[in-house]
Nucleic acid binder design. Structure first.
Length: 406
RNA sequence: GGAGGGAUGCCCGAGUGGCCAAAGGGAGCAGACUGUAAAUCUGCCGGCGCACGCCUACGAAGGUUCAAAUCCUUCUCCCUCCA
């Protein structure tokens, strides 16, 4: 049963190699020895989003099959920074920050993994013990030529962009993590392929049986093009408010629907196939399918009730154009007003932080995005007399209910 | 050590004296439409008591010029080739 679920999850993944995986699973069943499954985490970005959940859910499946699961916080490697075109030096996190981030991780992954059966490990716990010679030793295990096989390095080398030698250490250290815990399986995104392969190679060097790699596809973010990532701002975080998760999900491209269903949801295999078929054959309205997806996702991370509520709210606000049931209360300071108790609308929008600058406010006004108590206001010179409970709306998503101080 | 190339707005990327707040694309935002915060179309997209005005902005600091992202000097960082 659980094995089936795992297999379903693995359908979209690239595995190196399937045969080895089956062999390991079989052997584990025979000997009763659980497999060690590793997933590396970046200590600087502790917000888990739907993209992260893809490998995490595979991990959960392994957990349910009673294998041993290791989350490795790369606090030591984090000091180097994963090679990227940005080549920005990553700022070093303090011990406290690392711990705080780890705690956040723990809290978040508990929504997916079984926390009692999850080993959370810091890779500084071994690397901090290392002497200089140990690092040099490690460096003898890999060649520059092989390093340059990495797409990113190869491209940068070809294009004449900088690659520091330090960057070569990143895959080495991350790979060594697998040696340190004697991983049987390592999970990761497709973009981690090179690093994971280094792990395999290093294990061989250190006389271990190389780990099996399970690389999950990268989930496109809400922009539908680039992979979901926090820095691109196209992510749906599992810790976000239900309304946010619901709304952001509704904003993904219809094209992405099937992919999201496959990669992020917990529908049973048969159910999932049915939904996908209906979408592909046009039997279910894309909007309805997306609502189902949105509801399901909210329910996964916030429970059914929140999902119902989020859907209702969404329908009210966006389908029917009604006001949200809850609006942030914004306080109008008495000193903003002139003798007759008025203020020009642009200043008010700015002071209430409904717009980021006065120019922005002017633009919104010009574009007809501003409503006061449901009345569209377009005149830039409008002065208003703020009254308690007055409702100001900017665009589709920004609302404020006013209150006035003395 | 020598020779050459480069640094542009949130990102990518054009621009080599005025027409440049800076092409184009992406992202973002708004409006219309709708089936949704989808798609599509249109518009906006540095700031400012802002309709033609001013300020800030093209790695940094100076300079030439009526006028500089564009020319000169110095500096910082990056890259390539040779050694």
């Amino acid at each position: 049963m659980e094995q089936d679920k795992l297999m379903t999850l693995l359908e979209t993944a690239e595995i190196i190699s399937r045969e080895e995986l089956l062999k390991k699973l079989e052997k584990s069943k025979e000997t009763g020895q659980p497999l060690k499954v590793k997933l590396g985490l970046d200590p600087s970005a502790p917000d888990i989003h739907l993209g992260h959940t893809v490998p995490l859910r595979i991990m959960r499946a392994f957990q349910d099959l009673n294998h041993e699961v290791y989350l490795i916080i790369g606090d030591f490697t984090g000091r180097i920074g994963d090679p990227s075109e940005k080549a920005e030096t990553r700022q070093q996190l303090t011990q406290e920050e690392v711990l705080a981030n780890a705690r956040t991780y723990e809290e978040q992954f508990s929504k997916i993994l079984n926390p009692d059966k999850t080993n959370l490990v810091f890779n500084s716990s071994w690397f901090n013990e290392w002497q200089t010679e140990d690092f040099l030793q490690l460096a003898t295990r890999y060649t520059v030529a092989r390093m340059l096989e990495r797409d990113d390095f190869a491209r940068r080398y070809r294009e004449g962009r900088p690659i520091t030698i330090l960057e070569f250490f990143y895959p080495l250290l991350q790979g060594y993590d697998s040696v340190a815990i004697k991983a049987d399986i390592e999970l990761g995104g497709m973009d981690q392929k090179f690093n994971l392969l280094v792990g395999r190679q290093l294990q061989r060097e250190y006389g271990q049986t190389p780990q099996v790699l399970i690389m999950s596809p990268l989930l496109e973010g809400t922009d539908g093009v680039q992979k979901m990532s926090k820095s691109l701002g196209n992510y749906i975080g599992i810790n976000e408010a239900p309304g946010q998760i619901y709304g952001k999900t509704m904003s993904i491209d219809d094209e992405l629907l099937v992919r999201y269903f496959k990669l992020t949801t917990d529908f049973k295999t048969r159910e999932l196939e049915k939904i996908i078929k209906e979408i592909e054959e046009g039997k279910i309205h894309p909007m309805e399918a997306k609502k189902l997806l949105a509801r399901h996702l909210v329910a996964m991370y916030h429970g059914d009730e929140a999902a119902q509520a989020a859907e209702k709210e969404f329908e009210n606000v966006f389908s029917r154009g009604e006001l949200p049931s809850q609006m942030p209360e914004k306080i109008v300071q008495a000193e903003w007003l002139d003798e007759s108790g008025e203020i020009d609308l642009i200043s008010l929008l700015y002071k209430l932080e409904l717009v980021e600058s006065r120019s922005w406010g002017r633009r919104m006004l010009k574009q007809g995005a501003v409503y006061i108590d449901g009345e569209r206001v377009k005149d830039q010179d409008t002065r208003i007399c703020p009254k308690p409970s007055m409702i100001i709306r900017v665009g589709k998503r920004r609302f404020a209910r006013l209150s006035v101080t003395q």
